[in-house]
Design a protein around this nucleic acid. Structure first.
Length: 492
RNA sequence: CGGGGUGUAGCGUAGCCCGGUAUCGCGCUUGGUUUGGGACCAAGAGGUCGUCAGUUCGAAUCUGGCCACCCCGACCA
């Protein structure tokens, strides 16, 4: 009845789509490949923004905003970056419409309003930003430049999936400029750590920090670092990337500075970003067949209070207690919703808030009033407990912490179970097909082997873990020597 | 862009083979009874059957074009 969700075992991707739609996170729009993020979904994004923005500010970054449009000549200045994104760029060629003489009431592109130079809708902003940085940077005293922007970008994807891959998406992109290579590398690593900390502590999703292989590297970067998360179907999802750009963009845009010795040097750069894709990761990491499971730190509503009553008199009595509990929880900084709608039965509300992943539900009815109790239910374990009314406010903070910890631990345990070490290519293929998850295997470090494995198994090298221990072995594919294992997986 | 599929009320659908202007469920509105795990009864509103053309006395149904979307592949945060 009502909102049925396809089970994960039956059809994992349908389950995901059902959840996104039925929990009111987002829906497809009339524009191909673009989504409408609905208020509930957007409030999760706002929570993510708040958490990340604070971490960015705490590490010395400031926000700014750069244009959506990038002149084509500027876009193509850093060749590798331009080539990498060329296939998925939207381009503005005209600046005016006019009435169509052949079709009354319709508009047409005015052929006389062709732009002198086409504008690329940013798939990422390195070009426009570095062309601006050229004007801002002259001296070592102007460095480092630590800027972030919250923006939308457009990548004309052929196949899209809500949150995970859409033609337009929201993200943040940090772009920093430094006087030395060491400082830029340190920044790249620092921001990777920020992402890892955010995803683990706010989203409760464990990640592997690593470095991308050459084949998976961001176009225009010297080195790409990433965090990789595992979804409940065993597939990997790249949750964030941080790039050491070397002097590639300084070269392309002529960004130089005078050092203390009065000598001209090229600036070193980084860029790093996470997107609304994180919402997809959040859903796929924790949620179940009853709906979303949100970590308290990102839940738009922490506690919902559902009154149980037979008539108005009971409702008003119950409301007194409910409002008092709500007030004391709000005082502690929690988002509390008291759902006193009298048109829906409690059972319906229970199901609805489970669907929406509200971490804690408090039910309070006439029997509770007699006993001075409430029923407290947690979303992650579905466990219900009876508590004294005057103990609730004090118990909720710990309960929310427990939930946050529990869902992280659960995800961590799952990842552990779904991570397999293999030493032969037969094992490698067998694990991928029968079990999935992360496969730790030796790789000879060549792009050829990486490509061949991808071709044959659809698994890619997710990353070379930063903490990979030195271990002599032989590549599962080529038999050539390898110094460490890398993480393979099929990925989103 | 290749291969497959689908377009009927806000959503999900029946009807299509065998032409006669549309079925059912959910949701919505109103009234009443309900309310400790997705309530029930009654009344009601809501449809250019994707679109354009053709065949026909008559088209959701048959024919052709076009459009859109979905699934599988190539591409990807």
């Amino acid at each position: 009845m009502g909102k049925e969700i396809t089970s994960r075992t039956q059809d994992y991707s349908q389950w995901y789509i059902d959840l996104v739609k039925k929990a009111d996170l987002a829906e497809n729009s009339d524009v191909r490949g673009c989504m409408v993020i609905k208020p509930y979904g957007y409030s999760i994004w706002e929570k993510m923004q708040q958490g990340l923005d604070k971490m960015f500010k705490d590490t010395g970054h400031v926000n700014a905003y750069f244009p959506l449009f990038v002149p084509k000549s500027m876009f193509e200045a850093e060749e590798k970056n331009a080539e990498g994104f060329a296939k998925e760029c939207a381009i503005v060629t005209h600046y005016r419409l006019k009435s169509d003489p052949a079709h009354k009431g319709k508009l047409m592109v005015d052929p006389d309003a062709k732009l002198e130079e086409e504008l690329v809708v940013r798939p990422t902003s390195e070009a426009i930003i570095w062309s601006t940085y050229k004007k801002w940077i002259q001296s070592y005293r102007d460095l480092p430049l630590l800027i972030n922007q919250w923006a939308n970008v457009v990548r004309w994807e052929m196949r899209t999936r809500l949150f995970l891959r859409t033609a337009e998406f929201l993200w943040q992109e940090g772009h920093t400029a430094h006087a030395t290579q060491a400082e830029a590398i340190a920044e790249t690593e620092q921001m990777l750590n920020v992402y890892a900390e955010f995803v683990e502590t706010f989203m409760a999703v464990p990640v592997i920090k690593g470095r991308k292989s050459e084949g998976e590297r961001f176009p225009g970067a010297v080195d790409t670092y990433c965090i990789e998360a595992m979804m409940q179907d065993g597939k990997a999802l790249q949750a964030g990337t941080s790039h050491f750009l070397g002097q590639n963009f300084a070269d392309a845009f002529g960004v130089n500075f005078t050092n203390k010795e009065g000598k001209l040097e090229k600036v070193w750069g980084t860029s790093w970003g996470v997107s609304t894709r994180l919402i997809g990761a959040l859903i796929m990491a924790h949620s179940d067949d009853d709906g979303l499971v949100l970590p308290p730190k990102l839940a738009p509503i922490h506690v919902v209070i559902v009154p149980i009553f037979k008539n108005e008199e009971e409702l008003s009595k119950v409301s007194v207690e409910a409002n008092s509990i709500a007030a004391s929880l709000r005082k502690l900084g929690y988002a509390v919703k008291f759902d006193n709608r009298d048109t829906l039965k409690p059972g319906f509300k229970f199901a609805e808030y489970e669907l929406k992943g509200v971490p804690v539900r408090i039910a309070i009815g006439p029997r509770d009033l007699e006993n001075k109790t409430v029923e407290v239910a947690r979303r992650d374990t579905k466990e219900k407990m009876v508590m004294k009314i005057d103990e609730v406010a004090a118990a909720i903070p710990k309960l929310l912490d427990d939930i946050q910890t529990n869902i992280y631990q659960k995800a961590l345990t799952f990842r552990g179970q779904m991570t397999t070490t293999v030493d032969t290519y037969d094992q490698f293929k067998k694990v991928l097909d029968e079990k999935g998850g992360f496969v730790l295997a030796h790789w000879d470090g060549t792009a050829e082997t990486e490509a061949a494995i991808k071709e044959e198994t659809k698994a890619t090298i997710r990353c070379i873990p930063l903490d990979a221990k030195e271990e002599n072995g032989v590549c599962v594919y080529s038999g050539k020597p390898s110094g460490r294992r890398v993480v393979f997986a099929r990925a989103y």
